[in-house]
Amino acid sequence: MNPLHGGWLIPVSLVVAMVLAVVRVEGGPDWLAWLRPDWAVAVMFFWGVAAPSRVGAMSAWVAGLFFDVLVAGPLGLTGICLAFATYIAKRFEERINLYTVWQQVAAVFGIAAVIQLVKRTALFLLDIEWSAWAVLGPTLTTALVYPLVAFVLSIAARRVQV
């Protein structure tokens, strides 16, 4: 089997996650931003479970740099969050693969909660306003969209044989 066969889907899915991370609803209310799922975490978690040999903490960290400049955040913050999500996914890959959908949602909820808490705390240390909603909102929506992300990506992954 060609080791690079279909592997391009992973960066492509990350680019789609980047677009979704900044696409906006013109004239939408402020709090809409708190309901934006952390697409990058959902995508990297999926690949950590579905293709653990193709992704690693290092590649996740580098991908995070692009997310950081995209949302004008401090460099390295998204990187460590994605590296953590990928590491957990790879570490417990066999167990997570046996989980039901709702157990997976719960797992993503837990990981996203830790990640959002770390993110918001780091931003607070860099003098950006703390907000509990900014932790809770994305955590909830990330967990809720995960089944959809996993569904779409697993179909795509099967097509191109990642």
């Binding site: 903490a57 390295g76 913050l77 990187g79 590296a83």
Partner: peptide
Amino acid sequence: LLLGLTLASCVLL
């Protein structure tokens, strides 16, 4: 690796 990356992130921050 994870420890190293955490350290790298902290340095950048």
